[in-house]
Amino acid sequence: MTWTERDQKVKEELAEWENKLLSYQPNDFELTYEKYIEKAFSLLPEDIQTQFFSLLDAWLFHLHALIQGTQFQMDAKDRVLSAGRVFDPQIEGITDFRNLEIDQLNYIVQQQISRHRFYSFAQGGLAGTGGTLLLSSDLPAMAVINLRAVQLIAMSYGFEVNTPFEMMTSLKVFHIATLPARLQIEGWEELKSELYNAHDYLFEGNEKLTDVSWIEQPIKQLLKAMAIIAFRKKYLQGIPLVSMAIGAGSNYSLTRKVTDFAKKYYQWRYLLNKSDQF
């Protein structure tokens, strides 16, 4: 298959986005913050660090598999297929989406993105009320929302996430999307390299996900929780609007970051699958 004019336009947009990643320059605060975190973790014994990140990787992997097997996700997959059949009644499975035009796929994906950004916004608002249960469940809830969003974006571009390669790839997309901006280009290049060297089914790349560089995101979540606790008693007409705004805004920002990155990656996969012009 050859690219259409719109495919070429999307390819140019991806190249521009990639150049922005490549040219990103961290400020002094970011570099100092990174060194502080690395120094703090270096105080822990190496075996403790290894065990901690191994457990974190295992938790993400099992959470990803759990989400994939839920009826809620299966129903969402059926809705994606139904949306695809609006454009092509002959669609029978996820891989058939690769026969649709890029703008048709973007429309389907944007529906998923909008829905999950709303979920994050609502979850953040609820956590922002400062309730112990809601606040403590915010981190796992955000992991579920964003992992689920990546899975559905992948499926919307025609990539089923039930094979070892696609499962690990979608996890890596989530992981890299949540990295600081200064580190994303390295992760992006790793994703591309692993795909070029991939087999059809098995994943043979680096299966390690989290490390010290990723820990900034959980720290941001912790700082958000502290801010919510600090402002939860600041009521406006009986509602803790300030803390709710902090929670909703922070969660929305994270999901926007994750869904934007996932969309770019699977657009690139779609174009690569359609033609070898990359």
Rank of each mutant, 00 (worst) to 15 (best):
L195Q: 13
E12N: 12
L222Y: 13
R148F: 07
Y33D: 09
N251I: 01
E186Q: 11
T132R: 01
P218L: 03
M168A: 12
F52W: 05
S193I: 07
V212E: 10
H175F: 13
F261G: 03
Q151V: 03
F52T: 03
G69N: 15
T95I: 08
E189P: 05
Q123T: 09
F174T: 04
Y119W: 06
M167R: 13
R232H: 12
L223A: 14
L272C: 08
V150W: 01
I153N: 00
F72K: 15
D103W: 01
N273H: 15
T4P: 01
E13F: 13
F118N: 10
Y196Q: 13
A149P: 04
L147Q: 05
S243G: 09
V212I: 08
F52A: 10
D200A: 03
Y157K: 01
D211Q: 09
Q184L: 00
F121A: 05
K264W: 07
R117E: 11
R148E: 13
K39N: 09
Y119P: 07
L81S: 09
Q8C: 10
A225Y: 08
A58G: 06
S120K: 02
I94N: 06
K20F: 09
N106S: 02
L236A: 09
K274C: 04
W3S: 04
S243L: 06
F203L: 08
V212R: 03
L254S: 11
Q217R: 15
L105Q: 05
M155R: 15
L63S: 11
G130L: 07
I48T: 11
V10D: 07
V144K: 02
M226T: 12
I239D: 12
S213I: 06
E189M: 11
V109H: 02
V258Y: 07
K274R: 07
L195K: 14
E189Q: 15
P89Y: 04
Q90P: 03
V173R: 00
K77C: 10
K172E: 02
D103T: 05
K257C: 07
T259I: 06
I113Q: 02
T32H: 14
D103H: 04
R232L: 14
T255G: 07
G249V: 08
G93H: 11
H175C: 11
I228V: 15
T132W: 02
Y201S: 09
G238E: 07
L31S: 08
R148N: 10
A230N: 13
L191K: 02
T255E: 14
R6K: 14
A262V: 08
T210C: 13
I102F: 00
Q104M: 04
I185G: 01
M74D: 12
P164T: 06
A149D: 02
H175M: 11
M155P: 04
Y36M: 14
P240D: 15
E160T: 00
T129I: 02
